[in-house]
Amino acid sequence: MIGARSIAEPTIKDTIVHRTDPRAKILILISTAFVAVTLDNPETMLLLFLTILSGFALARMPAIKLKTLAFLLILLIWGTIYSQALFYSQLPRTVIFTIIQPDFPVLGWLTNGGLFVYEEGLHHGAIQGLRSASILSLGLLICWTTDSRDMLNGLVGLRVPYSVAFMLVTAVRFLPIIITEVATVITVQRLRGFNPKRFGSGIIKTSLNILTPTLSNCVRRTGTLAVSIQSRAFRANPSRTYLKKLKFSELDKVMVTACIFAAISIVIIKLLYNMYTSGIYYTSGLRPVYAIARGYL
């Protein structure tokens, strides 16, 4: 069974992926997100996805993480396939299954003429699912190969205000405690006869019964924690020193430069191509650029 622990906790090893500077990882993730939403060519999208997956092999991820990844990817891609099979709205489209008949009372009218599963939508969903799959995979790879403290240092290194980074540290540190508390409260509620899975007003009632004690503990903890932090001179000085200094290696610099350059180039090429197809801007000198966008991106 895939638990919260297998999703949340990083696996620390000494591989090239683990050694990469957290700032470099964040910048690579942002660049990849731009590339993923820009691409339209299925082959290039698949290539990007496979390239990201190869990172898991480089990072020598344990089997449980790979199973978690596979499980999440299957759900994600299937969810996209399913939704697109239903909502696909371009031609040609072939109905392979009818969920709601157009003349079905109320629902037929509500769905504006029935609900069908389209064959071409399945294909479209599979291709478009690669986009989300690429971003999710890279996000998980980074999370699973980076210690949360290093990640926070990376964020501060990227000029995220210290107070925000501090809030994040607090949130990350208290996450296991709060997960345990939520689980304990649910167990107690069950023992008292509540059913947390009951649909409708039951779930609201259960939520209130779970949230009230959990959040009450948080409120109580807040006072103690605030005093403790302030006594350690939190926000007393405008600048801070850090025990661990982050340093970009040469490889990090090359990777970050290559990724940012590739992302900017791809975004600009696609932007120019979309301006051309929309009739907004065209110049004959950019024909090779249009050809690259049409053929490969």
Partner: peptide, 30 residues
């Protein structure tokens, strides 16, 4: 400071009670 801590803890609760279970439940229900 106590406001920041409280916001951070609420963020943690929302993550623990919503985001984490929904990472799987959202996709599963879809």
């Amino acid at each position: 400071t106590r406001n920041l801590v409280l916001i951070a803890l609420f963020g943690t609760v929302s993550f623990a009670a919503i985001n984490l279970p929904m990472t799987i439940l959202w996709e599963l229900s879809h």
